[in-house]
Write a protein that binds this DNA or RNA. Structure first.
Lengths: 241, 241
DNA sequence: CGATGAGTTGATCTAGATCAAAAGCGGTGG
DNA sequence: CCACCGCTTTTGATCTAGATCAACTCATCG
């Protein structure tokens, strides 16, 4: 299977059948004309370009369509806390619902496109299309559920488990998108990975070489090849030595 | 101001004006009869009793009305990861929206009461009462926003900052509920606090005595008195020595 | 080309974990 | 009422995973 390709995409406003596949909803009865009235516009982001910044007023949520988005909290001292890496089908911006103002920032790690879901249209979705509203709820639940998994990972697990788990998550997410689960492109730096997992970049690097020596994977710069998914799973579940 | 009191509460089905104050919604136009059709039943929990357990099917969200609820993820080895402590007005159970099955467990730390919000009624809320639906969205946003703060706290901050921040959060939450911000009852053990913050219980204990020596607080068993909120804030923001 | 940033590897240090012991304190049952 | 057990908390001593510091190698790029 082909590895994920961040190649250029069509950026027209209307959703084609192919694109609709990429939405995290089971669209069933909803035709794309109807959907277009809810998902207004899509937006193209170049590498390094921000989708939104902390403290900006929030008028919309976003669903990633292609590429890779990093969310992070800037800290007083110029540093940052990486909060997540978001691939196609991911919903982002929920954290802003409470204050109608983004409380974190989102930046494109590669050229990316996102669908814009105006907050005003949420009400309409719930009213006119309860099934879609239900899907949205499930997505919200998934975000929160995933957060709890992260708390366990960062609060209780050692560096090897953290890195292995993160790589497996990436792998399965790519797989669900129809790409290779074993050969993929890390869109983020070692430093970003470390920051996300509560580790130093040197530690991440060491774990990578350690996994390489165990024959589990090969990580050459951004290119990652997983040779032994089973072994990686054993590490992630703490069942390895 | 009186410290939070976990005393016995009336457990009748209908909401009195006094109780309505305790809901996290700005109820404005909504009269309590109408609300009763949405918030079915309330539930009394004794100390140690579970509200729900991981893997159980989920039919409802809950809003804490009184007492103190701990959520946690049981781990394979009989241990657990504490995910949160929930006080009145907190919404819990969102993580179950994605699978219609709870992915964590919730247990009462003191005698508590909760309002039950059946998932089926969510649709109705959005349809018939968009204002209330909007409030629900804000609550969801708040939960997620708070999760990001926790990621930063646990991924980047040292033990002193973690404990100070947690105590200040508790303090301000009690304050918002109309209780003393400086004199409060810790409903959880040191072990729970440590587990929640990614620290050993011994570390939490040491931080408490350290804060005591600095004149910041007195923690005698469950009883906490904050003597110097300003200093505690300095610690929490990393601006202290 | 120089420069700047990403990645790797080695040496050293330290915050906080772990291990150990003891004290306090309910609760229970005879 | 007392003896006992189990749980929580505290404090001290020791250990270690991972941070930090430092040096070097590549790529990429204006």
């Amino acid at each position: 299977m082909r590895p994920y390709d961040c190649a250029m995409l069509n950026t027209s406003r209307d959703l084609s059948a192919r694109e609709v596949e990429f939405l995290p909803f089971d669209l069933g009865k909803i035709n794309s004309a109807k959907l277009n009235t809810l998902l207004k516009h899509q937006q193209l982001l170049h590498k390094g370009q921000h989708l939104y910044r902390m403290d900006e007023p929030c008028h919309a949520l976003f669903i990633v369509r292609s590429g890779s988005i990093k969310t992070y909290t800037p800290t007083n001292n110029g540093d940052e806390k990486v909060q997540g890496f978001h691939l196609p089908k991911d919903l982002i911006g929920l954290e802003a619902l409470s204050e109608e103002r983004y409380s974190i920032s989102a930046v494109a790690l590669t050229m990316s496109t996102v669908y814009k879901l105006p907050i005003k249209s949420l009400e309409e979705i719930y009213k006119k299309n309860p099934r879609l509203g239900n899907k949205l709820h499930k997505l919200i639940g998934k975000v929160i559920d995933n957060n709890y998994r992260m708390f366990t990972l960062i609060g209780k697990k050692n560096s090897g488990v953290r890195v292995a788990t993160m790589l497996l998550n990436l792998s399965s997410q790519y797989h669900e998108l129809g790409y290779s689960a074993t050969e993929l492109c890390l869109t983020m730096t070692r430093k970003d990975i470390g920051n996300y997992l509560g580790l130093a970049e040197e530690t991440v690097s060491r774990i990578f070489t350690q996994f390489h020596h165990l024959g589990i994977l090969t990580a050459d710069k951004k290119q990652l090849v997983i040779h032994d998914v089973k072994a990686l799973n054993l590490v992630a579940t703490g069942k390895s030595t």
